[in-house]
Design a protein around this nucleic acid. Sequence first.
DNA 1: TGGTAAAAGCAAAAAGTTTGCTTTTGGTGG
DNA 2: CCACCAAAAGCAAACTTTTTGCTTTTACCA
Lengths: 200, 200
Amino acid sequence: MQKEAVDRSSPRPGGRSARVQKAVHRAVRELQADGGEGELTVPAVAARAGVTPSTIYRRWGTLSQLLSDVALEKLRPETAPVDTGSLKGDLTLWLEQYVEEMASAPGRAMIRDILRETLPGNASQCSAFTYGQIETIHARALDRGELAPPAKLLLERVIAPVMYRILFTPAPPTAEEAHRLLDEVLTYPLGQSNTDGHGQ
Amino acid sequence: MQKEAVDRSSPRPGGRSARVQKAVHRAVRELQADGGEGELTVPAVAARAGVTPSTIYRRWGTLSQLLSDVALEKLRPETAPVDTGSLKGDLTLWLEQYVEEMASAPGRAMIRDILRETLPGNASQCSAFTYGQIETIHARALDRGELAPPAKLLLERVIAPVMYRILFTPAPPTAEEAHRLLDEVLTYPLGQSNTDGHGQ
DNA sequence: TGGTAAAAGCAAAAAGTTTGCTTTTGGTGG
DNA sequence: CCACCAAAAGCAAACTTTTTGCTTTTACCA
């Protein structure tokens, strides 16, 4: 009785599948935005999307998987990080936005939704988004001729502690704490002895 | 229609409540140990525990909450970390066991179970367990007259990255990587500028 | 030792999920 | 361009899980 949904990434783009997917995702976001109390169920989403519940069950398998997919969409970066003219400026601004988004109640909910799934697919996508944004900043810094710690080190020394705080402690991290982590890694960027593990 | 279970920590220890709680927890562990495929449902747990489903729903609210509680029990340290005679030895041995336990498939499942809950209670308990173990090692080192980085720094520089890898990447961290993180923090223990956030 | 409130049992109703089959639909080869 | 085909959606009935009102049990307390 293992839940196992199908591919899910719209095998026929432009067709009915794509329309249904959009409608369902939108329905989820709308229901989440509404008071959101409790009634986020598959039948409710189906009704709002003008679709039959069995469609959702067959395509996503479970509500968790659907919520995970929606959260991943919300987390997908829409634009490259702002270019402030310096590595530190770019990272500081980007990190502030990152922490604000992730540490908020909706942000925490998104992360939990993403992690709920058994397969690490969406979670690693999520990490890849973050990695990509940092990598962009990194490449830009190198272009300027700046010395810049690799994205991987920033993930390890800044993002990981921030995420740990968000997931495992009652009080989410503050912008100040994030700044401290960033300053430390920029001041003492040791630990470059990196064998792989994050293949972008 | 918000799910909201009652206290859950056996208000009448020694009585029937405690017996039911034990039976239910045991039933969950047994079902998880068995092939575990799919049939981990509230009715299944109830049947195995010789209890009626409504008891479980009323006490735990949801299967997630129950699984979270069971996972927290499994994660509770039973003994203090082994004393190897040195800070580095203590930390290395303890960390090896930690990573082995957490990065395994059952370990990952436990962490996901703990994080599934909306309230951060169990997750922060879990972190507190880890903090406590490291704190024990730390205190022991100070007794020996060793210089030792605070537990909080180890959480930030070693545990958080390990957890991040476990949660967000397909390939869990290896013992080698954990060693690298530990070596780095022991070699360059900067970042002591700690305002609080983890009050043990 | 009875009184009492909290927790468990029970069973029926409600809600959610699965499934077999039919219908729609977007792509494809004739 | 049209008929065909397979994939996905709709539908509805069967099935499972969850909720709920009420009764019974039971540990604690006076």
